[in-house]
């Protein structure tokens, strides 16, 4: 299990998206921010659905350099990428 860092507002929103879009086959409440989402059963296609859901929710577009496995690996890594894109948009 990863560390349970449920502090950031962004992480809370990401967690909500994970649950609402059924991205992983386990309840999102028990997931730590550092846990590997792929290990928890997120398929390659589910990661695409997650990407599209994040883009819609945060009004961002992931650039090509971010379209890789690592970006979507954990709530923390998603938080980092989304925060960067949201900051760049402002």
């Amino acid at each position: 299990m990863g560390h349970l860092l449920k502090g950031s507002v962004m992480a809370v929103q990401i967690r909500e998206l994970l649950g609402n879009h059924k991205i992983i086959p386990v309840p999102v409440d028990g997931i730590g921010d550092m846990d590997d989402l792929y290990d928890l059963g997120m398929t390659s296609f589910a990661s695409v659905q997650l990407m599209l859901a994040l883009e819609e929710a945060f009004d961002i577009e992931f650039p090509e350099r971010m379209l890789n496995r690592k970006t979507f690996q954990s709530i923390a890594s998603i938080d980092r990428s989304v925060s960067e894109l949201v900051a760049g948009r402002a």
Binding site: S44, F45, S47, V48, M51, E64, L67, N68
Partner: peptide
């Protein structure tokens, strides 16, 4: 599509 790029990278990485 764009999501396909992510899937392609996943496939290559593994």
């Amino acid at each position: 599509g764009r999501g396909g790029k992510l899937m392609a990278r996943n496939q290559r990485d593994q």
